[in-house]
Amino acid sequence: NQASVVANQLIPINTALTLVMMRSEVVTPVGIPAEDIPRLVSMQVSRAVPLGTTLMPDMVKGYA
């Protein structure tokens, strides 16, 4: 089972991601792979992401 990136806190719209905002977790459906966490740092979210939400490619500007 592949771990995905999950929000560790509420991430407001247009916030630049930092390591403390993200954790890896095995979830369904699968989201952005956990190994991409270093690449996500400083990228902005395109919408508010609630705590515990799996990050999907369309939620991060410039990821897809």
Rank of each mutant, 00 (worst) to 15 (best):
L17Y: 01
K61D: 09
V20M: 15
T53F: 13
Q2W: 13
N1L: 14
A48P: 14
T15D: 04
V49A: 07
L40E: 00
M59T: 06
G62C: 11
Q44P: 08
L51P: 11
D58S: 11
S46D: 12
T15L: 05
G62P: 04
M59P: 02
A64G: 12
G52L: 05
L10N: 10
D58Q: 11
D36A: 12
Q44E: 06
L51H: 15
L40D: 00
I32H: 01
L17M: 14
P33N: 13
I32G: 00
S4P: 00
P29Y: 05
G62A: 09
P33D: 07
T53A: 14
R39W: 14
N8W: 05
V49M: 04
L40W: 02
P57C: 13
Q44H: 09
I32A: 01
A48V: 12
M21E: 01
V6M: 04
E25P: 00
S42C: 13
L40N: 00
G31C: 03
P29T: 06
T15I: 12
K61P: 07
E25V: 07
S42N: 07
T53G: 11
V41D: 03
L19G: 05
R47V: 12
N8G: 12
S46V: 14
D58C: 15
P12K: 07
I37A: 09
M22P: 00
A16R: 07
I32Y: 01
V60A: 01
N1S: 14
I32R: 00
T53K: 07
M22R: 00
V20W: 12
V27A: 06
E25R: 06
P29C: 05
Q44N: 07
Q9C: 06
M43F: 11
T18Q: 06
T54I: 10
P38R: 09
P29S: 04
T28A: 14
M59A: 12
L55D: 01
T28L: 05
V5H: 00
S4Q: 02
N14A: 11
D58Y: 12
V26I: 08
I32E: 00
I32Q: 00
E25F: 05
G62V: 03
V45N: 03
T53C: 09
T54Q: 03
V60G: 01
M21D: 04
